[in-house]
Amino acid sequence: MRTTLHVNGKLVEVDVEPRLTLADCLRHELRLTGTHVGCEHGVCGACTIIVDGQAVRSCLVLAVQADGASIQTVEGLAGGDALGPLQTAFRRHHGLQCGFCTPGMLMTAHALLQAEPEASEARIREVLSGNLCRCTGYVGIVKALLDARSAYARPHTREAR
């Protein structure tokens, strides 16, 4: 089926089988392999991307369901080659080891901090509890988010849209 996606600011058209998940579409049709697939049943969170401004699990969305949607993946998180503030904070606080959960963590964190730049540690742990990491014990990830909050702070208004 012909499906149109806006991925990281670019309009792309793909022809996909209905059974193809959005995760597999991004990875294998569009070659955006930064989005990882850890369980294919919606538990691990590694495949989390941002669809129309919200964090969702791309293994639990059919590509055809995303027709017309605006999608952001880890490849679109920073402009150009430099790391963005969230990525820099992950590096500084050793918020990753094997890197497999990292894209999903980053996208969940990005959506959270965009909506709630003042998220508390408890709130961070609550929202990111849906993203499993087997390496770090999470301590560095939490520190990274706490540190990155300032980069998301909005000086004047709390209204995002």
């Binding site: 919606g42 969170g45 989390t48 919200q54 964090a55 969702v56 699990r57 639990l60 969305v61 969940t108 959270l112 609550e126 929202v127 509890s129 849906g130």
Partner: peptide, 9 residues
Amino acid sequence: VGHSSIRNR
């Protein structure tokens, strides 16, 4: 219910 990214859909 589930986690926040589940609740988004």
